[in-house]
Amino acid sequence: MPRILLAAIAIAIAFPLPAFAHKFWLLPSQTSLSGNEPWVTVDAAVSNDLFYFNHFPLRLENLTITAPDGSEVEAQNAATLRYRSVFDVALEQDGTYRIAIPFAGLFGTWEENGQRRRWRGSVETFEKEVPGDAKNLRVSESMSRVETFVTNGAPTNEALKTSGKGLELVAKTHPNDLYAGEEARFQLLVDGKPQAGLEVEVMKGGTRYRNTQDEMKLTTDSNGEISVHWSAPGMYWLEATHSDDKTSVPQASSRRLTYVATFEVLPQ
């Protein structure tokens, strides 16, 4: 894949565009299964239209798949194509799997010989690639997480545990127990603590085939929670962002946190 494409994807993941522009997502072929060692296929993409791959593939270097017992399993048949990445997951255990692509990095700007320089990379490469005497250096930190959930048999909760780092979701209603006409309750945490006043956007897939986005704009309450009413069955996308100055690296003065998830809502 061309380096310019890889760089564009990394930048987009670290610094998400407005909700009406590019969206990041993982889309499983189905989320609730039963049987003897079933499989799911997952698409991973950055798109203009929700769940329609027409922009960039989502890179899989940081892909993590957490099994129902909390262990990590490997993706099968992974490939990155022109507009999407794709991989299979063998559901050898009963219970809920968490499929996620986390990202963490730094963005820096400074002046050099009268011109503005920009840099994006990891904490590990910062000191090697950014001059120690950089003039007017400004550094920001970015942490994001794109994920989805798949259950074989009865839903379980072991794989849903949070890490206490960045922006995370606590599913008060199990993510694979969602039905049209009902409500789900979710809690958003920042560094393990409930985050009040957080803006959350929820949108049904298929935006390519309707004239409006039809998004739901919600705000977390004093306990960091939201209630989502599912008006119709289908695949849904949720995004939340948060900015503050509570960086985890001394070089950065600000940080941006992003959380994205895909849910399947089933008919009654």
Rank of each mutant, 00 (worst) to 15 (best):
Y179W: 14
Y179S: 11
Y179C: 04
A180H: 07
G181V: 13
G181A: 08
G181L: 07
G181S: 09
G181H: 10
G181C: 08
E182M: 11
E182I: 02
E182C: 05
E183Y: 11
E183A: 10
E183V: 11
E183C: 07
E183G: 05
E183K: 14
E183W: 08
A184I: 15
A184G: 13
A184E: 15
R185V: 09
F186C: 10
F186W: 15
F186Q: 08
F186K: 09
Q187Y: 08
Q187M: 13
Q187N: 09
Q187R: 15
L188H: 12
L188V: 11
L188G: 02
L188D: 03
L189E: 08
L189H: 11
L189I: 10
L189P: 11
L189F: 10
L189A: 12
V190K: 01
V190Y: 00
V190Q: 01
V190N: 02
D191N: 14
D191Q: 10
D191W: 05
D191P: 05
D191G: 05
D191A: 10
G192T: 13
G192A: 09
G192K: 12
G192S: 08
G192F: 10
K193D: 01
K193H: 01
K193I: 01
K193G: 00
K193N: 01
K193M: 01
P194F: 04
P194C: 08
P194L: 09
P194S: 10
Q195A: 06
Q195I: 00
Q195E: 05
Q195N: 01
Q195D: 00
Q195H: 00
Q195F: 00
A196N: 03
A196R: 05
A196I: 06
G197W: 00
G197D: 03
G197T: 02
G197E: 02
L198Y: 06
L198C: 13
L198H: 04
L198V: 09
L198N: 13
L198F: 07
L198P: 03
E199F: 00
E199A: 09
E199T: 07
E199I: 01
E199S: 07
V200L: 06
V200E: 06
V200Q: 04
V200N: 05
V200S: 03
V200K: 03
V200T: 13
E201K: 00
E201G: 00
E201D: 03
E201T: 02
E201H: 00
V202F: 05
V202S: 07
V202W: 04
V202Y: 04
V202H: 02
M203G: 06
M203P: 07
M203Q: 15
M203V: 15
M203I: 14
M203A: 12
G205T: 12
G205M: 11
G205C: 08
G205P: 11
G205K: 07
G205Y: 08
G205A: 13
G205S: 12
G205R: 09
G205N: 12
G206Q: 07
G206I: 15
G206C: 12
G206T: 14
T207P: 12
T207W: 12
T207D: 15
T207F: 09
T207A: 13
T207L: 13
R208E: 13
R208H: 11
R208V: 15
R208A: 14
R208W: 08
R208S: 09
R208G: 06
R208K: 15
